[in-house]
Write a protein that binds this DNA or RNA. Structure first.
Lengths: 167, 167
DNA sequence: TACATTCCCAAGCAAAATAGTCAAGATTAT
DNA sequence: ATAATCTTGACTATTTTGCTTGGGAATGTA
């Protein structure tokens, strides 16, 4: 599992979808506008999410996306690994031949770590996220935003993500 | 914190250094040969490790690197964040202005996740890794390898890493 | 002093991944 | 018929990664 903005976008979009569940199918255009993600990029992400049955789609006018299962059953880890595909063929991938056809020194460390993070992320469901107060507050703001304001401005540059971020 | 092969290289090299601690300063050339990492790349990584005082260096003949603190006091998380520098200026970095100058929907999720992974990795010391049976076995093999064998061959392509890896 | 050995540092570079655009189509409600 | 919406694939720009090159600076040994 990798942890990049790609996975973040996917989780953000899925959470948006969850929050508006019950309003019928949600269009990607809506999500793009509310979450500030490019529509075409969302299309790519949702293509992968659909292949993993995390979302279901309805075409045509009034169509859009809905969750493939209930929000309690969709976990953050699933969403991230759905979009990240992680075909890292540069190292051992479970085979024990990382170095000179034998196992590298830290082989097991990375396996363990991978499992740990994966299991952590797979305990957090979309429903859990929706239950968070801070999430609901932001969602409310987004829903009641004057959408016209978006046409004129472009997003400030002075941002940066609190991604898995240390230094 | 990012989790890439860069951090893996750094941890592998630091672990090699720990395992040969007590033999006096270890040269990067030795580590490069044992672990199959390019010497120049190691130099770059160790430059950063040195700036964070994770290693100490001695120049000149007979010189090399040694641990900056004892193996019990150096944690995997430190090593990874030392080399990854993580100047991700594309999103919010702790400021709460990820989207349109306000907080994005999953802001807290990524903060929490970051902290979780960071604290997991910061519980694992180099000493812990050295105590693992599998690590000692691989280290023994590497130490007793016929080094001449390396001159002729090039590493097989059929590898791939078990990095944080899901799919 | 010469010199080999080692660390140190900066520039540059190819390949891959990321983030995104663009264009064409398929499906379906109205 | 038409417009809204998903679906797909190709293409592009930028960044990161992993690595090379080429020079240094320090220092033990002869």
């Amino acid at each position: 599992m990798k942890l990049t903005t790609k996975g973040r976008y996917a989780v953000t979009a899925m959470l948006d979808l969850s929050l508006h569940y019950g309003e019928g199918p949600i269009t990607l255009a809506d999500i793009a506008q509310r979450q500030g993600i490019s529509l075409s990029y969302l299309e790519q992400l949702f293509s992968r999410l659909r292949k993993k049955s995390l979302v279901a789609s309805v075409r045509g006018p009034g169509g859009g996306y809905s969750l493939g299962k209930s929000a309690e059953e969709i976990f953050v880890g699933e969403v991230i690994s759905a979009v990240d595909e992680n075909i890292d063929t540069t190292r051992c991938n479970g085979a024990h031949n990382c170095q000179n056809n034998e196992r590298c020194l830290t082989h097991d460390l990375w396996s363990d770590l991978s499992n740990q993070i994966y299991s952590y992320l797979n305990k957090i469901s979309l429903q859990d996220l929706m239950d968070r107060k801070a999430v609901r507050e932001v969602a409310d703001r987004q829903d009641h935003a004057d959408h016209d304001e978006l046409s004129g401005l472009d997003i400030s540059m002075a941002d940066g993500s609190n991604d898995l971020a240390g230094t």
